[in-house]
């Protein structure tokens, strides 16, 4: 199959199952792009999430564009962008037309009531899988815990946490490299 068609179909799937915010796309991208097709590795995927979170715009959209560009250049990013927005366009226009009928459907509500806890579980499990690619060092464990606490407990903006950890990484890596040299 044509590579662009393959990328488009992968992101069409991702867009169709991103339910309840940008992070919901993480399990599906991880399975489709990282573990099944091995197009990028776990480390690169974490980098892409960090960059996507740090730029303006929706995280799912930014990640799709980034992965498309990385794998197949400008045309690749157009293809993955279209893949991720087409399900929204189709579903939202349908919902906008039949909104009042759909709103009253108890089955639709019950369906999503079941889906929401599952999405949370899938994201948590994927976070574990992605964490296994990070080198097992105390400094990394400390960074994971402290960034979790600063966001959840102290309500610090994720971008600030990312910038702070980038600086810490810059300083520590430099020390490691200079000690290797001497």
């Amino acid at each position: 199959m044509n590579y662009y068609v393959k990328l488009f179909l992968i992101f069409l799937k991702v867009g169709s199952f991103t339910i309840g915010g940008g992070y919901a796309m993480i399990p599906v991208i991880q399975r489709e792009v990282v573990s099944n097709n091995k197009l990028i590795d776990s480390d690169e995927f974490l980098d892409i999430i960090a960059v996507s979170q740090s730029l303006p715009g929706a995280i799912a959209v930014n990640s799709a564009i980034f992965i498309g560009y990385k794998l197949a250049g400008l045309l690749g990013s157009i293809v993955t962008l279209l893949g991720i927005i087409i399900p929204s366009l189709v579903v939202i226009i349908t919902v906008a037309v039949f909104y009042n009928e759909i709103k009253e459907q108890r089955a639709v509500q019950a369906f999503f009531q079941g889906v929401r806890p599952a999405i949370v579980a899938l994201i948590a499990a994927t976070a574990f899988k992605l964490a296994s690619s990070i080198p097992k060092k105390y400094i990394n464990l400390l960074l994971i815990i402290s960034s979790f606490i600063s966001i959840s407990l102290f309500d610090i903006h994720p971008i600030i946490v990312i910038i702070a950890c980038a600086l810490i990484g810059l300083i520590f890596n430099r020390e490691e490299n200079s000690s290797e040299l001497s």
């Binding site: 992070y23 999430i49 976070a127 992605l130 964490a131 960074l143 606490i149």
Partner: peptide, 16 residues
């Protein structure tokens, strides 16, 4: 270096 520091932060971010 920058990404070595950011990767653990992303795990914290996703967990939060």
């Amino acid at each position: 270096g920058i990404f070595a520091g950011i990767r653990p932060a992303v795990i914290g971010l996703i967990s939060a």
